[in-house]
Design a protein around this nucleic acid. Structure first.
Lengths: 203, 203
DNA sequence: ACCTGAACACCGTTCAAGT
DNA sequence: ACCTGAACACCGTTCAAGT
């Protein structure tokens, strides 16, 4: 059997990514596999390998879309705040909101690992840098006297911090009994960090 | 065949956990599976299920040991610093050192997820709380006027932050090309956060 | 040319059968 | 009683064979 050509390669790619997104959203990372994706789009497993190099490639392309969506949400937030301290706080809360609203998709970015030895492709690292860029831009505006290296360092510290609070809260590893809301912790982190960042001139 | 009784149940349990620890350390989470653990201790897969409920149970017990080791390292560090600000910084750096030195074991704590619906057992959550307790104790001493709820909130914010920096740095998801050292970012985070925490009386 | 579906080498988990 | 090893229902990936 075979030779259907109901859909172009690009259509199959889009359908597969949409199906994978729905599966991970509804059932989580562990439930995401090739046969389930294929049957959701009405094709057999083999077809996926005509369009994607392998499952790692499919997951990477799915994560790339999520990073695009995250960047769009943060960029929208950034453009709504002229004051750069307000902007940084709004960015942090927008990150928390995205993580809470799209938890499974957002977690897939961090749960998926390439086989040992393989590194993330350059076009993918560019997308990560774009998200960090929004934070760096606001920090640079807040402290114009700092070098770009100092601003980059502060962005890593602050954004790593925001991310860590989200991860520990959403995966229930923050020590306390039930799940805790990351909102208050992030507010505390950003407020205190920025106060110190502006007050201390060295580093 | 069968009936060897070369080892007691408890001995087999200890051997399996030691083998699993070695495999994850040398080959990473993805390479850790039942058949490999069993053959490393000279038994067949079936035997593992006499001692552990399933692989999730085995991983949880391995993570419990790692949490014990982490707690011991942090407790040692804490007792070496009388000044509580110095103690907090030393704790943060000790956490970074542990994550860098035992990366694969430390990552297993966060990469391993129970099936949807299942929650971490109470005895395990106690171990997580013990680690947080060291941070809370130092923060409480630093700011005796704060309520215990405020101290707990600050511990979540600060420690979530330290953790996030480590995770992003060690998994190469901090935006910049090569891997970045988490040490400088953590130093920046803790210094600036604590400065703000002491200066701002509300929250 | 496009797609299938069976095959291969793996998984986690169970359990009748051996000693 | 203790352990085996074969079996089951799954994986990801490949590829000869059909249309």
């Amino acid at each position: 059997m075979a030779r259907r050509s109901d859909h172009s390669r690009e259509e199959i790619r889009a359908m597969a990514l949409a199906a994978a997104q729905q599966i991970v959203t509804e059932q989580g990372f562990a439930a995401l596999n090739a046969r389930k994706i294929a049957s959701a789009i009405g094709y057999t497993v083999g077809t996926l390998y005509l369009v994607f190099k392998n499952l790692d490639d499919l997951f990477l392309q799915l994560n790339a879309r999520t990073l695009d969506d995250l960047h769009a949400a943060l960029a929208d937030t950034a453009s709504a705040h002229a004051d750069c301290e307000q902007r940084l706080k709004a960015l942090a809360h927008a990150y928390v909101d995205f993580a809470c609203e799209h938890t499974q998709r957002w977690e897939l970015i961090f749960q998926h690992r390439l086989p040992p030895g393989e590194t993330l492709p350059q076009w993918y690292q560019v997308k990560i840098s774009a998200v960090f860029g929004l934070v760096e831009a606001a920090l640079a505006e807040l402290a114009p006297e700092r070098s770009s290296a100092q601003v980059a360092e502060a962005a890593r510290a602050l954004w790593g911090g925001v991310h860590g609070i989200c991860i520990l809260a959403l995966t229930n590893k923050l020590g306390v009994g039930g799940a805790t809301s990351p909102r208050a912790s992030v507010e505390s982190l950003v407020t205190h960090y920025l106060y110190g960042f502006r007050a201390l001139t060295g580093s």
